[in-house]
Amino acid sequence: MIVILARLAILATFLAAWQLLSPAFDLEFFLSTPAQVAVSFWAIASNGSLFYHAGITSFEAISGFLLGGALGMAVGLAFGRYPFLAEVMDPFVTTFYSLPKVALAPLFILWFGIGIDMKVILAASIVFFLVFLNTYTGVRQVSREQLAIMRLMGATERQLVFTVIVPSAISWVFAGLRLSVPYALVGAIVAEIIASNRGLGYLLSGATTQFDTAGTFAAIIAIMILAIVLNFLVKHLEIWLTPWRQSAPDREITV
């Protein structure tokens, strides 16, 4: 309770300072005021454009996550299973991994236009590497002893893949899920800022180009809320999908 009160006090102090100091130092043009931001936010929320743009951005982020995630898992699984392939491809993968994927955005615009496709693909290219690396680690993490024990139980290679390797990789992917979704959002928003006609990134850059500081803050707040919602959903999805992880703290720990 005290914690909540303290948090509210900090928030109130911050907003009050912003509200009072911004006009006092004649910085309203750059900083706007919470009241103006609230009005701006209410305007986009009440005419429905907020939900339209947020919907577009969510769609891009989630599609990008699913596409990049599926490809990342497939490639991670293949590399994990065939070390020769992994060894051959290693320098290429490392090079692409080091490249900031945002640098590919202009190329994607050239190839796919400024529509939703390009955002999905940029988000996917960011998520791909995160999921790929997690999956690859997951597959490699399966110990040779574990596989030997399964083989002694009579497991065929196919059964090994589906009973041990894939579930192990998936549990690693779930572990990376919470990491990947915010990155998918980064991909979608950056792509929208670069070139688009809808989405929260478009709303943001649109307001900035019109020197609408209050509108810019309103868009940032909308992005924050979307990020919080996505994080919340992913967290609960993770709990639901990986019940064995959450169960650990039930037990007394032994050090």
Binding site: P243, W244, R245, S247, A248, D250, R251, T254
Partner: peptide
Amino acid sequence: SYPSQLSG
């Protein structure tokens, strides 16, 4: 129970 919930 999951293995993580069990003692050694």
